[in-house]
């Protein structure tokens, strides 16, 4: 079978594209390793998505997922390993199967940015984590460090405070980048959280599990005993498997026509955080997903 459209990504952009594609009666398959993307890792509520004064990322994603399922869209939760253009069709390879389509929407969002220090990979899952909401509850009464003093770092630290006995936020700059309101909340309501500035991370060490981190602060080398390290230093576009298939920006975002979401390759469209759109917001990702699906409909009708 050749699908009209395969949508790659199960975040807000991919789900919205799936809903729109189904309404246009396209034979559509939506694939991705897991529902939710960054939204599922948000440890504080979303307060800027219309229709909900306040909702957790988990609940909003469940509502979006249910809507997609109710529409009868075919969904597979599996990792996409490769996409290839073959004549006028695309071949999408998952870990266990292959599928073909006439068009593609890439909505893979972003992946965690790695720190790139010694021990990070080695201790991944053994104290090092990028997913605070997943693994944070496993650090009850433990000492943890959050790397990154941005909004996500502060939110992660607040979440971790419910479990850990002590939470350090380590920021490499001379000041944190989290919003003033987030900083005020932390300083007044979260006594377990301690912020350390001008931290140059050197390595993560341990035995079976993480035991300590080593960093430089000025001229001093500091060894901080911790049980967990939560890395929250931002995201990078999840575009690596599309390199060579579509044109990317110098930040590895997929270049799109902002009106149509077309990429440099005919038949491939992109939407959401993986695109080179400047505003990375859930509602914008949904908007781009809708635009991309409507553009696919026009594209297939013209063919």
């Amino acid at each position: 079978m050749i699908y009209d459209l395969i949508i790659i990504g199960l975040g807000p952009a991919g789900i919205t594209a799936g809903i729109y594609a189904k309404r246009q009666n396209l034979d559509c398959l939506v694939v991705g390793k897991s529902f939710g993307g960054q939204m599922m890792n948000k440890s504080v509520d979303i307060e800027n998505y219309p229709g909900f004064e306040k909702i957790s990322g988990f609940d909003l994603m469940e509502k979006m997922r249910e809507q997609l399922v109710q529409k009868g869209v075919q969904i597979i939760e599996d990792e996409v390993l490769e996409v290839k253009k073959k004549d006028n069709f695309f071949k999408v390879t998952l870990s266990s199967k292959e599928f073909h389509s006439k068009s593609i929407i890439i909505a893979t969002g972003s992946s965690y940015r790695c720190l790139g220090v010694e021990g990070e990979n080695n201790y991944l899952g053994r104290g090092v984590s990028y997913c605070t909401t997943c693994d944070g509850p496993l650090f009850r009464n433990k000492v943890v460090a959050v790397i990154g003093g941005g909004e996500a770092g502060f939110e992660a630290a607040r979440f971790l405070s419910s479990y850990a006995s002590k939470v350090y936020i380590l920021e490499k700059g001379i000041e944190v980048l989290a919003s003033k309101s987030n900083q005020e909340i932390v300083s007044s309501l979260y006594p377990k959280i301690e912020v350390i500035l001008e931290v140059e991370m050197k390595k993560i060490e341990g035995e079976e599990m993480v035991k300590k981190i080593v960093f430089k602060k000025g001229e001093d080398e500091i060894i901080l005993p911790v049980d967990g390290v939560f890395i929250q230093i931002g995201y990078v576009p999840a575009s690596s498997i599309f390199n060579g298939l579509v044109d990317l920006s110098n930040r590895n975002e997929i270049l799109i026509n902002k009106e149509t979401c077309e990429t440099s390759t005919q038949g491939i469209f992109a939407a959401g955080d993986v695109s080179d759109g400047k505003v990375k917001q859930i509602v914008v990702a949904c908007g781009e997903g809708a635009k991309a699906a409507m553009s696919v409909y026009k594209y297939l009708n013209k063919k």
């Binding site: 529902f35 997943c134 693994d135």
Partner: peptide
């Protein structure tokens, strides 16, 4: 699993 974990949910659905 833990309650708010995307891959836990995926595995449960699977």
């Amino acid at each position: 699993s833990t309650p708010i974990c995307p891959y836990c949910m995926t595995l449960k659905r699977f």
